[in-house]
Design a protein around this nucleic acid. Structure first.
Lengths: 221, 221
DNA sequence: CAGTGCTTTGTGACTTCGTCACATACGACA
DNA sequence: TGTCGTATGTGACGAAGTCACAAAGCACTG
């Protein structure tokens, strides 16, 4: 059976020299994970560098009191870059990763990863770029959590998560987890948005009515 | 003039093969920066990988409204790992780095850095470990900012920043920046600590009186 | 289709945190 | 000893988080 060349799914890897790309493909394997699978979590060190072929993985942090905050998502074509930090580093993972959908991914063993880093400038760029994006994003989250108002953040999140019909199929609790706040706070804000006729809501789903107004709130102060 | 072999200052670099260590030393140069120098900031991409020989660098984020939060500090023997993310990655730095004291550092040019990553497993481990620590720490900050009470965080910070005599030579404003909160909030909390006789304060300096009580607050919920 | 049980949402009361607008107080230095 | 810049104190109020329930909404069952 021939091994499918999944490297073409990753723009950053397409230009890999064949002498590099072949061992990469041969030494790693494609894994499938069902939606809801916990991929890693506090106390579980990841064992391989993961590249997503399909689906999305949500990386989040859970507080002692049970409140949650979503740190970022990994989608098809991306790598779970921060796993790398822990893959390479001395510490255990503090956050947890959950498959949001069924997921197909390439698992690159630690040794292969290390070898690739050594041998391919192209691969290094790919890894570091992914890293850079995540870290920049973490900075942004800190900024928002520390300094930004929830109404603004909620408007941004709704716009970000809406599908093409302007619908967001999440419960208040799930939105609260996205922003790292409490469910009641979200309920009240949504109520206020509804009062202003910016959204309409049913159990478990929100429809954006006035995207323009939401953008105005989300944008300039 | 002989070039000083500063690699011995870095435990992670001591075991570098000479064939690797020599070019590292030869291609990089030692720089000195006066206290207060802004080393990098939003819009300024760093040009080199920095290893600190002496002094400390504070990395912080400034909000639109002027509030600040300290993300981490780089001390002697450490690398400003996250600079690397941006060094390697596609994006500009979102945070700013300021020399807190006079600083002596080794600046490794981008090309040399890349070459070292390629050639030395030892150096890779050094860089990734530093990375890992910072990222883990960023996770912790997000957790604390989002979920933890200021009185607890303030107690922790005081204990962390106290010198051997239990003194913290910072203004309320500076403490507020450490925690990403407002000065008034700190003033009130310190007042409360004082009322309970846990600290005593003079202009610009705080003395910890009952470290035990502070630890109790900082520790278990 | 009425009943039951789980999940989701609504709400009031209260605490904590952040903001604004000043009032004081301290300390260095002329 | 006065003056000036920085540091700290404070009240009022709005925004956000917590707690303890109440009330829907939905699925499944008999």
């Amino acid at each position: 059976m021939s091994i499918p060349d999944w490297t073409s799914h990753f723009p950053g890897l397409r230009k890999l020299e064949p002498s590099i790309g072949r061992p990469l493909v041969e030494n790693s394997k494609v894994v499938k994970l069902a939606a809801g699978t916990r991929i890693f979590g506090p106390g579980q060190s990841p064992e391989a560098y993961l590249l997503l072929l399909d689906g999305t993985v949500r990386v989040q942090q859970v507080s002692e009191t049970g409140r949650e905050i979503v740190l970022y998502r990994v989608s098809a074509g991306e790598s779970c870059a921060l796993t790398t930090a822990c893959l390479m580093g001395y510490e255990e993972y503090q956050a947890e990763g959950v498959a949001e959908t069924d997921v197909q991914a390439v698992a690159i063993p630690r040794t292969t990863f290390d070898e690739l880093i050594a041998r391919s400038a192209e691969f290094r760029r790919f890894v570091f770029t992914a890293f850079s994006m995540r870290v920049t994003n973490l900075f942004k989250i800190i900024d928002e959590v520390a300094f930004s108002r929830v109404d603004i953040r909620l408007a941004q999140k709704l716009l970000e998560l809406a599908d093409s019909q302007g619908r967001v199929a999440l419960t208040h609790q799930q939105l609260a987890s996205e922003l790292g706040t409490a469910r009641e706070v979200i309920s009240r804000q949504l109520h206020e948005f509804q009062r202003r006729n910016w959204i309409s809501a049913t159990r478990g789903e929100i429809s954006l009515v006035s995207i323009k107004d939401l953008q105005k709130l989300a944008g300039a102060p």
